[in-house]
């Protein structure tokens, strides 16, 4: 009814806004033109070899034709990039809503209920609900403020910490030159990385775990460094024969690639092994809100 119509209007406006934002990015034109010119030249050469006289005429015609095609091709390329980005964003949403996080949380709640720990169960459910709510709200936006992203990350880390009976601690440090309330980031990039560290690095470990998150900026790039002191990638326990890279990590990698492609930035996603544990570096375009 009323609610529905206004919702639709909001959605349309958002779509329009997103659409405009992408189309206004004109920098990609030059790059694609180069690529196209390269593939075009040999074919002209080929034509000249076969029919010398008609080559000049046909060549000119093809050139004009290709130029038109090039423009069409460009808008197609932007369009398809945008589509890919949107679908990856959708995937991260489903990745967060379905796998181990939800079921492990439900399992913990079940455990509290079975042990008749009413207060703990209720507290856990409320934290879990808050995380789900914020995750959904953030995922609806393409970019959010770094402070909001960190806020959710802390809630997630605190909940995992409760579940692991405080087996690990975490530190989040931000370079002083970065204003968390004026820096735009894609939502939830760090969450699957941290989840991976906890589940595959820290849980199988006997001693206390530590996750260190450092956020810095370098050459127009925002860099997330996430380190754990867990068991690392090369010493999997018997149960952990599979690679440490989860579906969530793969989706995050894909998102970073697409984001950097759209902003024409040479950012990368790196996983390296430390003497103890694993270090993950994710590089994103550095973008200020104002």
């Amino acid at each position: 009814m009323m609610t529905e119509t206004i919702k639709c209007r909001e959605r349309d406006a958002q779509y329009k806004f997103w659409n405009d934002k992408v189309n206004s990015n004109g920098r990609k034109d030059r790059k694609s033109k180069r690529v196209f010119a390269k593939s075009y030249l040999p074919s002209t050469f080929h034509y000249t070899c076969i029919l010398i006289s008609s080559a000049v005429i046909s060549g000119t015609l093809i050139k004009l034709f290709h130029r038109k095609k090039l423009i069409e091709g460009l808008s197609h390329k932007v369009e398809s990039l945008r589509m890919e980005l949107a679908s990856a964003e959708l995937k991260i949403l489903s990745a967060k809503l379905n796998p181990h996080f939800i079921f492990n949380a439900l399992n913990s709640i079940n455990q509290f209920v079975c042990k008749n720990e009413k207060q703990l169960a209720s507290d856990f459910i409320n934290r879990f609900a808050l995380i789900m709510r914020k995750t959904l709200i953030n995922s609806e936006k393409g970019k959010i403020l770094l402070e909001d992203d960190l806020d959710l990350l802390r809630l997630y880390l605190d909940l995992e910490s409760v579940r692991m009976e405080n087996k690990f601690n975490y530190i989040i440090e931000i370079e002083p030159s970065i204003e968390a309330n004026n820096t735009l980031v894609p939502p939830g990039i760090m969450q699957p990385i941290v989840e991976n560290s906890i589940w595959h690095g820290l849980v199988p470990m006997a001693k206390d775990g530590l996750i260190k998150i450092y956020i810095k900026k370098e050459n127009g790039k925002l860099i997330y460094c996430i380190e754990d002191n867990g068991v690392g990638r090369f010493k999997p326990t018997e149960k952990e024969t599979k690679s440490r890279e989860s579906r969530g990590i793969n989706i995050t990698k894909e998102r970073i690639k697409l984001l950097n492609q759209l902003e024409e930035i040479n950012g990368e996603f790196k996983i390296s092994d430390l003497a103890e544990g694993v270090s993950v570096t994710a590089e994103l375009p550095y973008e200020k809100a104002f």
């Binding site: 609610t3 206004i6 919702k7 909001e10 459910i125 409320n126 609900a129 709510r133 709200i137």
Partner: peptide, 19 residues
């Protein structure tokens, strides 16, 4: 219901979220 929540905020009416 994000739309409803916004409506409550506009009118400063109190609301509770489930759970």
């Amino acid at each position: 219901d994000q739309y409803a929540i916004k409506a409550f905020k506009f009118s400063a009416l109190d609301y509770l979220l489930k759970p």
